[in-house]
């Protein structure tokens, strides 16, 4: 069973001048893909497409062997919930505190506002040094801490697939080892990952396959 299967998938992103024409891509449970490409925009767009944040022009998207219907965004929500996404366009909701952001999904699905952070999230917040900043709004965090908070939110959402872009820049070099450690534990549980990185050691350690993107075409190596 494929976790994600793209069949003749065409996407167009006119702002960045990127497009993929009739690409085919399949991702299984134990896959760890590193995206290698000349254009960062194209790699980012591919990651967005996997996160279902880009509506396709044509083609089929299968998530856990079920065809995803893009005609209504609400059909995508149960799939998106199972995807961890850390990229340059990841954001936190600015009108609630960092703690509320980390608890937002649970607030909604557990239908309770009297929840506290679970053990993993608390541990990550302490390890990454943002535990004392949980009760302020994201806008008051430094950009590094904001990105760390986003990463913690995504790491703790128990994803079925984890997508991330340049963790060495996103998390910052000082916290990169910590992130690598957490990711290592996650990968041991056979969590499929797709990532963009310019850190060769990171690519070697975490990927078992590579996606080569060139001029809107995709090849697997």
């Amino acid at each position: 069973m494929y976790l994600i299967n793209l069949v003749d998938y065409t996407i167009d992103f006119p702002e960045s001048g990127c497009s993929f024409n009739k690409m085919n891509f399949a991702l299984s449970r134990d896959d760890a893909f590193a995206i290698i490409g000349d254009s960062p925009d194209q790699a980012h767009m591919f990651l967005k497409a996997l996160a279902m944040l880009v509506k396709p022009v044509s083609g089929d998207f299968y998530f856990k062997d079920k065809k995803v219907d893009f005609s209504d965004y609400r059909n995508l929500l149960p799939c998106k919930k199972k995807i961890g996404y850390i990229a340059s366009d990841s954001a936190m909701i600015s009108n609630i505190t960092v703690r509320e952001n980390l608890l937002f999904t649970r607030y909604y699905f557990d239908d309770s506002l009297s929840l506290s952070l679970d053990e993993t999230a608390t541990k990550l917040c302490k390890n990454f040094g943002i535990y004392d900043k949980l009760d302020i709004h994201p806008g008051r965090l430094s950009s590094v801490n904001l990105r760390i908070a986003i990463a913690i939110r995504e790491l703790t959402k128990s994803p079925d697939l984890f997508l991330f872009e340049r963790p060495e820049d996103f998390i910052g070099h000082t916290n990169f080892d910590l992130f690598t450690e957490v990711l290592r534990d996650m990968v041991l549980t056979k969590l499929p990952i797709v990532f963009i990185s310019y850190d060769k050691d990171f690519i070697e350690e975490f990927s078992n396959k590579k996606i080569f993107l060139k001029d809107g075409t995709l090849s697997i190596g």
């Binding site: 929500l77 998106k80 919930k81 954001a91 909604y108």
Partner: peptide
């Protein structure tokens, strides 16, 4: 919220 992808963040949490 729309411009800075906060709506996307809500959707990625599986929430309408």
């Amino acid at each position: 919220m729309n411009l800075f992808h906060e709506i996307d963040a809500i959707e990625m949490a599986g929430i309408d």
